[in-house]
């Protein structure tokens, strides 16, 4: 279940956008220009079910997303999707992992408070007994040069 973002959760001036996901559902998101720097030395780890529902998060995920663990578990992973991210990037992610391969890319994630943080993400399918039972995503700190390249590139893909 994914619900619209609430103005009372937002820190600072915000803009509104409506995102439509690949399953046809929509969500109103509120976003600001406030970046939360990725902390040195940490990894953000999460696991989802095969259809993208969050089943595990680590503490760094909770801290960086701004949501509580209870809010995250059972929510679709697209709860973090930022309107500046081109849909093509997520299509490529899903096409790749559904082929059973590893995907890597740079992602701008949306926080509960409307701010954002950049990550270098790697997603792999969890194969157990020959079947994909979910996906693990690990995010690490990206370099500023990679982020700057994405800031220039992503608007051209939307």
């Amino acid at each position: 279940m994914i619900v619209d973002m609430k103005p009372e959760d937002i820190v600072g001036e915000y803009q509104e956008a409506t995102l439509t996901y690949c399953d046809g559902k929509s969500r109103k998101v509120l976003y600001t220009g406030l970046e939360t720097p990725y902390p040195d030395g940490k990894l953000i780890v999460s696991t989802t079910t095969p259809d993208g529902i969050i089943s595990h998060v680590n503490r760094a995920f909770v801290e960086m997303s701004g949501y509580t663990e209870t809010e995250l578990l059972g929510a679709p992973h697209c709860i973090l999707r930022h309107p500046d991210m081109p849909a093509a990037a997520f299509k490529d992610l899903w096409d790749t992992v559904l082929r059973g391969e590893k995907w890597q890319g740079f992602v701008k994630n949306l926080r509960k408070d409307g701010g954002y943080y950049w990550v270098k993400a790697t997603v792999i399918p969890n194969v157990r007994g020959g079947k994909v039972v979910g996906f693990t995503s690990v995010r690490r700190k990206p370099s500023r040069s990679n982020v700057d390249e994405c800031i220039a590139l992503y608007p051209t893909l939307i």
Partner: peptide
């Protein structure tokens, strides 16, 4: 899970 994790890091 740890093996999957190592796999994601080893790229």
């Amino acid at each position: 899970f740890m093996i999957d994790l190592m796999d994601t890091l080893n790229t």
